[in-house]
């Protein structure tokens, strides 16, 4: 029986196309699913946006739902200053969502279950948000690390705590998504192994497997939402400090 971790293996599906800094870049299963996410997401959204009907059809209603969902999220968590970052946050949500959900397809690949991907995304968000805060507030940005109104003598304790919590944001953000996706898929694989191993009694883990699959679909959507809303909250911190 295959290891439950086998599903996460990166496989080269082509010969290396070129190399950057000594690293050979080939088309991998991860890359295929990233491309599939981009194609599926933009295909769906463009199909939804193409008609522009006054009374939307199903696909258009879905596209508008995505749009208004993220627009409301930004308006509620960041305010009007966040409007500029709407396309980025929208893309982040759609990319993560489609990556998570497409990964649920049997024999598929979940690129969001890789720390390299989630950490890079989290790092981009973290660095971008920090730079936005620095550009907007200058050195005043560092008041973020000392809560307004706290007694001055608490500074030696508070500032390191705030600094560590701030610096750990990309780690928590990326590990949350990576760990959730990885654990879910491992669990599915292990349960599927039981189904095969138990023969006729495999119907019991099969029933559990169905339930867990539904749960994992929920987790896939929820984690995309959490990833996006945390980015919004970080952006809000940078734009408005505390």
């Amino acid at each position: 029986m295959a290891s439950p971790l086998e599903q996460f293996a990166i496989q080269n599906l082509s010969a290396p196309l070129f190399s950057i800094g000594g690293h050979h870049i080939a088309v991998t299963n991860s890359a295929v699913f990233m491309m599939a996410s981009v194609v599926a997401a933009s295909g769906l959204l463009m199909a939804g946006a193409s008609k522009g009907a006054m009374v939307p059809g199903r696909i258009q209603a879905m596209s508008e739902l995505f749009y208004e969902f993220i627009a409301n999220m930004i308006r509620d968590n960041v305010g009007s200053a966040g409007k500029k970052y709407f396309p980025f946050i929208f893309s982040l949500f759609i990319f993560t969502l489609f990556g998570n959900v497409l990964g649920m397809i049997p024999y598929g690949f979940t690129f969001t279950s890789h720390i390299a991907v989630t950490f890079f995304m989290a790092m981009i968000v973290f660095l971008g948000v920090t730079l936005i805060g620095l550009f907007k507030h200058g050195l005043h940005f560092f008041s973020l690390f000392f809560p307004h109104g706290a007694p001055l003598f608490t500074a030696p304790i508070l500032i390191p705590i705030e600094l560590v919590s701030y610096l750990s944001r990309p780690i928590s953000l990326s590990v949350r998504l990576f760990a959730n996706m990885t654990v879910g898929h491992v669990l599915l694989k292990v349960l599927a192994g039981f189904v095969v191993a138990l023969g006729i009694f495999g119907v019991v883990p099969l029933a559990v497997l169905v339930a867990i699959t539904a749960l994992e679909l929920l987790v896939a959507v929820l984690q995309a939402y959490i990833f996006t809303i945390l980015c919004c909250i970080y952006l809000n911190d940078a734009l408005h400090l505390h």
């Binding site: 996410s37 981009v38 933009s42 390299a116 991907v117």
Partner: peptide, 28 residues
């Protein structure tokens, strides 16, 4: 495998961002 993943992530996300920012979102 990190460089390959990051490379494809950047490419795919850039394409998605471009499509969303220039085509889909203004239209919706």
């Amino acid at each position: 495998h990190f460089p390959t993943q990051v490379f494809w992530l950047v490419v795919c996300f850039a394409v998605l961002y471009f499509l969303m920012a220039k085509l889909v979102l203004p239209r919706i």
